[in-house]
Design a binder for these strands. Sequence first.
DNA 1: GTGAAAGCGCTAACAA
DNA 2: TTGTTAGCGCTTTCAC
Lengths: 360, 360
Amino acid sequence: MVEQADGEIPAEAAARRPHEGRPTIRDVARLARVSVGTVSKALNHNGSLRQETRERVISAARDLGFRPNDLAQSLHRGQTFTVGLISTDSFGRFTIPIMEGLEECLTDSRISVFMCNATDDPEREAQHVESLLSKRVDGIVVTARRADRRSQLRVPVPGVPILYVFSQSDDPDACCLIPDDEAGAVLAVDHLARLGRKRIAHVTGPERFEAVRLRRDGYRKTLASHGLTEPEGFYLPGVWSEGWGREAVAQLFRGRVPPPDAISCGNDQIARGVCDALRERGIVVPDAVSVVGFDNWEIIAEATRPPLTTVDMNLVELGRAAGSHLIRLIAGEPLRGLRRLPCSLVVRDSCGARLGRVTA
Amino acid sequence: MVEQADGEIPAEAAARRPHEGRPTIRDVARLARVSVGTVSKALNHNGSLRQETRERVISAARDLGFRPNDLAQSLHRGQTFTVGLISTDSFGRFTIPIMEGLEECLTDSRISVFMCNATDDPEREAQHVESLLSKRVDGIVVTARRADRRSQLRVPVPGVPILYVFSQSDDPDACCLIPDDEAGAVLAVDHLARLGRKRIAHVTGPERFEAVRLRRDGYRKTLASHGLTEPEGFYLPGVWSEGWGREAVAQLFRGRVPPPDAISCGNDQIARGVCDALRERGIVVPDAVSVVGFDNWEIIAEATRPPLTTVDMNLVELGRAAGSHLIRLIAGEPLRGLRRLPCSLVVRDSCGARLGRVTA
DNA sequence: GTGAAAGCGCTAACAA
DNA sequence: TTGTTAGCGCTTTCAC
């Protein structure tokens, strides 16, 4: 259903060079009747110049629509003000907000981002690294799937700053930024405990995820810190799905032991399944059972009945932090090691209290 | 919860120039005992050279870990093999798969992508365009929110190829790529009609979206082509939410007229709400009522009970098409006008038939 | 305060 | 077949 045909394709469709003939610093110099050195000074606000000369140059540059050629500048300076973003995972739901924060932060520092996707293809990753090195990027950010500690990015040029976000390298000296999963779980369970809940269950994802193990630790430590015990069978690792949430409710309410009065879930999908299953059993959320999710994935959290109180990993903020870390790395600061950034609790209606947003 | 402190920050954290001192073509020439011109020839496989010389150069380059400096190459050639991707909307659920396809296609052609996000901020957009022009990109891709025809991207340099994806410019000559919404709706409704459904309703989003109007047209035309009528009150524009889907079911089953035996929904969220509401009324999907969604947003479509049969806009493919269109534009082909790409129907369980994937 | 010129790393035209 | 050299557009000494 093409609404307009293309024009005829000329036999000799010459590759365009859209920037050919664009005004250079020489053109500006000529028009302003000064030397190129003077133009450079005037435009970069360094060196001393007569006010009149400076203005003449500036207006000449404006008249010509002059834009300095970053390629030439970078070639000279040895710095490009560009960085690469390599995503080992494809651009997923977690990477997006991170990219957004990262891009925002870097743009503020006039740094451009090359976007590279290497979905689990080491060859493509290597190809991207090569390309970035040829483009002389000032640094590289790596985002990956969370599950596993990825092997170090192979960068065959020493000294190029590398930052891992939402991902860890097996090199202990690498600079890595990830959310503080344990503290996030503490936030959630603590919220439930403060609400007076005593029998708190934890329904979560597969234990091969480090995040699952850390959140479980947070769950247990918080129970302990409130003097609560973990009833037998109340810690339920499984899979990341609504179906598992519903299944877990069936298990928890089988009736052999008193059921939970609160359920902390490993993610929002599980929490949604939990809420649906509870409602279908006639158990009122949050009156009879409080439910808290993890991720604050709005499409899920807000559509759940009732809307989910859930832990937000502040991924946009994580992205911004990544940006500023990278900038410091580029500036020569020797940042290294793993760093965990705080989560927040977003309070909606699934726990029975409105407290606003809580940050660790 | 920092797991490792940073090293001390040296008072003079010198900005790194990680590429300083990297081998240049001169170094290769020196090592291979030839001239730079010869090295260039050898490495770029043009001109004629003695086999032995060529090999000597190549191995010298490898020994030194030589990577040609793209900045210098581009400066010379007037082409950078980079393009900009400007997202007017932030990186959303629709833009992601598009970016993925685009990046994939361009990477295959050794083109790098600058990622720019200008969430509805014209000033930031202008700033990004300036930056891209300074970087001498070979072309620019614009993705935007769907709702409205966006105003033309202001690019103050003539001749830079611009392509709009999942977005339209108000310039009728601009090259735009978007999904064929009408044909997508036809696919959905036709599927229902072929299943023998006679009373087909359409529950959809706000009419200010062109997509809503186009899908409505597809719905109506398909009814007509099957000799079906549109019962009074069976076309229900509203909002893009599960809540609206549930509400619409309440309206459709108020009992004044015979209810629908099929519901075509404007997106998957609505469809999910519809399915939930039907189930809660004891109406079995798909036995009593068939439901079809739109978007194939897997997190919704697969979690719905039953999993949704839904229209897929093939956004990754759209992204790839964008890449190849941009390449042709850069090559000088005068592509212009709006072009709509086909949708597919992904068959799951919500209609009562398994046919596999259907493409328009 | 301003101009001249070297050089960033590479390509391509021309010479040898 | 190989070497020499003039740029690409800019910054930055160093003279004047």
